[in-house]
Computed example of a mutant assay.
Amino acid sequence: MISVVKTYAASKNKNLNLLAAQAVLQNHLLERFLERLSKSEHTDKLESRKEC
C-alpha cells in the first residue's frame, strides 16, 4: 500500500512540475512576442484594452 501512495505522489509531483514548466515557457514566449511586436513597424496599429 505504501508503494502505491508513493507512486501516486510522484506522479502528482511530476504533473505539477510539468505545469509549472509550461507556465514559465508560456510567459517567456508571450513576453518575447510583445517585445518584438513593440519594436516592429506595426506598433502604431496596437490597441491597449482595459476591461472594467
Rank of each mutant, 00 (worst) to 15 (best):
R36C: 00
E31M: 14
V5S: 07
S11V: 10
K50I: 10
K50H: 06
N17H: 06
N15W: 04
I2F: 08
L18Q: 10
H28T: 05
K39M: 11
R49T: 07
S40N: 00
L29P: 01
A21V: 02
L25T: 09
V4I: 11
L29R: 05
K39C: 10
K45S: 13
A21R: 08
E41A: 15
V5C: 01
K6C: 11
R36H: 06
E35V: 01
L29H: 13
K39N: 05
L18T: 09
A9W: 07
L18K: 05
V24R: 15
L25D: 02
V5H: 07
L30D: 11
R36Y: 09
D44H: 00
E47N: 07
K45T: 08
K39Q: 13
S11A: 08
V4R: 14
A20S: 12
I2L: 10
L37A: 10
E41I: 07
M1T: 04
L16F: 06
I2D: 09
L16N: 12
M1F: 08
A9Y: 03
L19I: 02
K14A: 15
V5G: 05
S48R: 05
K39S: 09
K39H: 08
E51V: 04
L34I: 09
E31A: 15
R36P: 00
K50F: 09
K14I: 08
V5L: 14
A23I: 09
